[in-house]
């Protein structure tokens, strides 16, 4: 940065102070939670000694483990389906002109803008009504469960994947795809050999975002889950509302570390993409998308 554009002296020091205080604000609660999860005491606030006691109890808790398994199954399916659908949506919106494109563009942004409580309400009524109709017309009895959770997660993940992949696509020079066509590659070959490798970092970024969103969701899941189909965040949410226990600290730390590993992987992708001389359509691009106008 050139001299003269940045504030100097006192203003500069205040900016720095503000920044480091905010970082403290960001990280102190996280660090505290992790530290207290190793506290041996039954009481959350009283530190006795460091131990893995609560982690041991966590792994022996069938309900926690069952909820974790549900979370992973749902997240896996939701991520795969929403990544494929979201990528297709991004390609169609970014590379093609067709009737209804504007409408679709608007619909695709809705799940990002609408708050999750409203979305949860919408899907609760939808599944209730859909099950009623299926029962009346076809005599098929369906209830809420892992299937409805997965379907709901796909619904909001598609949009996020599409935004991330689109950001990547818009940075790409379409002349590369045209060159492939000039060299007698058919549509599919051009996609497989040219477009897909180029947007791969964006697709990976979108998939990781979908995975994170699915693993983190509480509100929508709570509304569309049935008896015996709790995911880990919903289970933890239920526990937390009743009070703070060291066991929740341990489970929370595991969830926190898992999401941090996902960030690390995502940033690793970015690094790798940059090493090949490319810019990744990372989560920042997602936010840039919002801030363009």
């Amino acid at each position: 940065m050139n001299e003269g554009t940045t504030p100097g002296g006192l203003a500069h020091r205040l900016l720095g102070l503000n920044a480091w205080l905010l970082f403290l604000f960001f990280y102190a609660p996280i660090v505290l939670l992790i530290v207290f999860s190793f506290n041996d005491n039954n009481n959350v606030g009283i530190w006795t000694e460091a131990s893995f006691r609560w982690y041991g109890e966590m792994f022996q808790d069938d309900r926690v483990m069952g909820a974790l398994r549900n979370s992973l199954v749902v997240a896996l399916f939701a991520t795969i389906v929403s990544t494929v659908l979201g990528t297709m949506l991004a390609i169609a919106l970014e590379r093609y002109r067709f009737r209804g494109r504007g409408t679709l563009d608007g619909i695709a942004y809705l799940p990002i803008i609408i708050p999750d409580v409203t979305m949860a309400v919408m899907l609760l009524i939808f599944f209730f009504q859909a099950f009623g109709i299926l029962d009346d017309l076809l005599g098929i009895h369906l209830t809420s469960g892992l299937m409805t959770i997965t379907l709901a997660h796909i619904a909001f993940c598609i949009s996020f994947v599409a935004v991330v992949v689109r950001a990547r696509l818009s940075q790409l020079d379409s002349s590369l795809e045209e060159a492939a066509a000039d060299l007698y590659a058919n549509r599919w070959q051009a996609f497989r050999k040219v477009t897909l490798p180029l947007i791969a970092p964006g697709v990976a970024g979108g998939a990781l975002l979908a995975l994170t969103l699915s693993l983190d969701d509480v509100v929508v899941t709570q509304f569309v889950s049935g008896a015996g189909s709790t995911t880990l965040p919903v289970y933890v949410f239920g526990l937390v509302r009743r009070g703070v226990t060291p066991l929740i600290n341990a489970v929370s730390t595991v969830m926190l570390v898992a999401s941090m590993v996902l960030v690390a992987i995502s940033l690793g992708f970015q690094r790798g993409a940059e090493a090949r001389g490319q810019r990744l359509a990372d989560p920042e691009a997602l936010l840039e998308e919002f801030s363009t106008d």
Binding site: F26, P233, V236, F237, V240, M255, L256, A258, L262
Partner: peptide, 8 residues
């Protein structure tokens, strides 16, 4: 923190 679990 942006990517970390909101509930936690």
């Amino acid at each position: 923190p942006f990517w970390s679990n909101f509930l936690v």
